[in-house]
């Protein structure tokens, strides 16, 4: 999907196409982003739904003042932060849990099959949110200027946070790459 395509369809909610195109391109990244904020499977689904709804609502207001990726990531991070702030103690407590299983075929358990992936995800979840935000976007190959635009900080700040995030993540993983 190109930005032009989204631009073409933005504002025409009847077709539902801008959302569908955006989801096709960024859906998987957003699922990973949600996993980095929320360890509990059913709460993760709730958060992903909240992001879907927020995106769908916001897309008609997209005025190309930034790239579509910046726009999407802003909404997703903001919604995820609200989720964390509103859940408060519940979220903090659940952050200490390794992974809560679900009786249904777990979406993530089917996706994250090996322990390396699991330990990477858990290590990322243990990072402070400000570093988690940067490292998850870097891992999804979001360019640094766009990360700066998503977060509202300078590119230098992004670089500083990325260095600290990498250091912390390395420590969390026991120093192994």
């Amino acid at each position: 999907m190109t930005q032009a395509k989204v631009a073409e369809h933005c504002g025409d909610r009847r077709l539902g196409e801008p959302y569908d195109q955006v989801w096709a391109e960024f859906g998987q990244s957003l699922e990973r982003l949600v996993s980095s904020y929320e360890p509990v499977v059913h709460a993760r689904e709730d958060l992903l739904q909240e992001i879907q709804l927020a995106l769908w609502k916001a897309l008609s207001g997209f005025r190309h003042e930034c790239s579509i990726r910046t726009f999407v990531y802003r909404i997703a991070h903001n919604r995820a932060l609200t989720h964390v702030w509103q859940r408060g103690k519940l979220a903090q407590a659940s952050e200490k849990l390794p992974e809560i299983s679900d009786p249904r075929p777990s979406p993530e358990s089917s996706a994250i099959r090996n322990s390396q992936q699991l330990s990477l995800m858990e290590a990322i979840r243990r990072l402070p949110i400000v570093y988690r935000q940067v490292i998850t976007m870097v891992l999804d190959e979001v360019p640094q200027p766009e990360i700066a635009a998503v977060l509202g900080i300078t590119e230098n700040n992004v670089a500083v946070r990325l260095n600290r995030a990498r250091k912390l993540l390395r420590e969390e993983l026991g120093g192994k790459p």
């Binding site: 990973r32 949600v34 995800m121």
Partner: peptide
């Protein structure tokens, strides 16, 4: 390496 592992973590089809 982290990126490769990170990108495998997808699949919340139910939602």
């Amino acid at each position: 390496w982290w990126r490769a592992e990170w990108k495998k973590a997808v699949g919340m089809e139910t939602v």
